[in-house]
Design a protein around this nucleic acid. Structure first.
Lengths: 182, 182
DNA sequence: GGTCTCATGTAAATAGTTACATGATTAT
DNA sequence: ATAATCATGTAACTATTTACATGAGACC
């Protein structure tokens, strides 16, 4: 089976929620779905060109509330169909590389002290994630309550939260085991 | 910062546990660490050549219990140092793309019935994973009890188990929400 | 004037998969 | 003999990151 970049579907999905330009797509990903997705400019711009060439999106002149003009991309009807077709048909693929597990699996080869430090770094990261997830949850419940996607977004936040808690819990356990060796 | 393939470190780690050839490495990954790692032949063989050229591994003629000869790769001392240096210094990087979350995040655009089917597929997968994790756990506790790595391996199995349970739990919840829309 | 954010892009390198080709050995 | 598994590899392609280049407009 041929490989197919997920980037194009990510962009179609995002643009189907809200029209924007490449720069804004990047910001959207960073600020909103970064806990489960990432894209670089080097992917975004060429993919936007490709999608436009294929007729799945088109450029649009938008005038905002201040009367300022701005170029944005909009998903076309064929684009939305393409996105939905992929969503409906492509089975969910799970990501195979987990560096945290890798490091613990081969943990005997590490300096225990340095392993502890890396685990503590992970704990800090997870705690920060938890904090921003809480903020997101609050935002969803207030500003975005009426949005047709809210329910779905909320589910993903719940997953991310559970995941962070699992990670914290497990890392603490690992730390306990490694502590004996330092 | 430059990117660096993790494949080389995966191979060094595996070979530091047990000397083997490329084919066996592939089988090892598939049968033992597939729940958090993967490598294809297209990566394994060129990387083995590179590692040998760098002096991090070397080919070795091994005679097994039946007196049969066989070529395997062994990690050299500089190879082990290289591996440990990476383990000690490179911070843990988390993987950013989770297609399951992606699909739920954009779930409104999916046919609810087809989303249900995909979720059920996920459930089956997770349940199978759980089963084989149980088998691994039993094996570790019997055949591999004395191995110096057992403790670390067991921790990763516990993580994988918790992860699978989290996934199952969450997917059930999502299914509950989607059910209303079918 | 200078700095920050907005905005778009490309080139080079690296990473990784898939599909194919080939041949040896082992089991039935 | 023939099918399955062992075993090694490569070529083509696809995906992705990183670093760089460039310029406009806003803010101070």
């Amino acid at each position: 089976m041929k490989r197919e970049s997920k980037t194009q579907y990510a962009l179609l999905g995002i643009l189907s929620q809200c029209e924007m330009n490449g720069y804004e797509i990047r910001k959207y990903i960073e600020s909103t779905i970064s806990f489960f997705w990432s894209e670089s400019f080097g992917q975004i711009y060429p993919t936007l060109s490709k999608l436009e060439k294929d007729g799945f999106i088109k450029e649009w002149e938008k005038t905002d509330s201040n009367g300022k003009k701005k170029k944005v991309f909009k998903v076309t009807r064929p684009g939305l169909e393409e996105f939905r077709k992929w969503m409906d048909q492509s089975p969910i693929q799970t990501n195979k590389r987990n560096e945290l597990l890798f490091k613990v699996f081969f943990g005997r080869h590490m300096n225990p002290k340095l392993l502890m430090e890396q685990l503590e770094g992970e704990i800090r990261k997870q705690k920060e994630d938890l904090k921003s997830l809480k903020v997101f949850q609050k935002e969803l419940k207030t500003e975005w309550e009426k949005h047709p996607d809210t329910e779905y977004w909320y589910l993903t936040l719940e997953y991310a939260e559970k995941q962070a808690l699992l990670n914290l819990d497990w890392i603490q356990k690992v730390k306990g085991k490694i502590q004996e060796k330092v």
